[in-house]
Amino acid sequence: MEIVLNPLLNGFVYGMLLFMLASGLTLIFSMMGVLNFAHAGIYMIGAYVAFDMSRLIGFWAALIVAPLVCAAIGAGIEVWGLRRTHHNGHIAELLFTFGLFFIIERGVQMVWGMLPVPYRVPALLDFPLFRLYGVDFPAYRAFMLLIAGGMLLAIRLLLTRTRVGLIIQASLTHPQMVSSLGHNVPRVFTLVFAGGCYLAGLAGVIGGNYQVTEPAMAASLGPIVFVVVVFGGLGSLSGCFVSSIVIGMVQTFAVSIDGSLADLLGPIVAWIGTDNLAGEILSIPVSRVGPLLPYAMMVGILMFRPRGLMGTRDT
């Protein structure tokens, strides 16, 4: 039981963190056709701003303010940047966000330095909530689940119960029609972009002290978030949720499995020997293959089912 339950809980926490990032990205991607490379950069900015603010005004105020800062940055990017490149097509927009990520990464290194900053869990939540088979479950992870779950509920209510939400939903699938009906689609775009960046910033605030706040955090998480979005499928928030949890679980479980293919195929590997390339591939432990799996999943799904798990149209 213990090798299943603990990774299950941790995988769920990690998956929820991924979902906070991926939900904003999938909304932006589905509506505007722009795969926002800078999204993980915004996540990183959220973490760093929260670090600075938690020293000045405390963690709880940072929890409110830092995501708002990120939303403002996002709105600025959309209005002054993306909208200007829009007439050059999706590739130009993609490249714009790509360049932006470049600048954000170096900018963060310049402002906050190359080394990790000591962004810690607030003292109020720094205690083990319960013990499970001898392993503590920190209260902060429960708090993360609470925030992520609350946000999930809020998005759901916003999208299904409000007028803006209905327009956003319609723009996901039929942007031209929505525009023809007289809605200000560019303004909806700005709103969604700012909203997505708000979520990324919030994920940064609660994820920065769960992981490590360092300049490489965006580059290491960014591609994983793309995997989540592509794997879940375009235009589907529930697909995004499922794939976040799946990727979170896959990565957590892979780390906790210590075996390798060689354990299953013992005699064959003994015959090949571990001294050559084939033997090495077979005898590598699953825990080290973990980082490979999400990318293999993405390449596979793009080859055979380009619309993703629950997508409504091809990527």
Partner: peptide, 12 residues
């Protein structure tokens, strides 16, 4: 694939 999906496959 082409376009964005191609970009994602090559990234992967």
């Amino acid at each position: 694939q082409r376009a964005t999906a191609f970009a994602m496959i090559t990234l992967g």
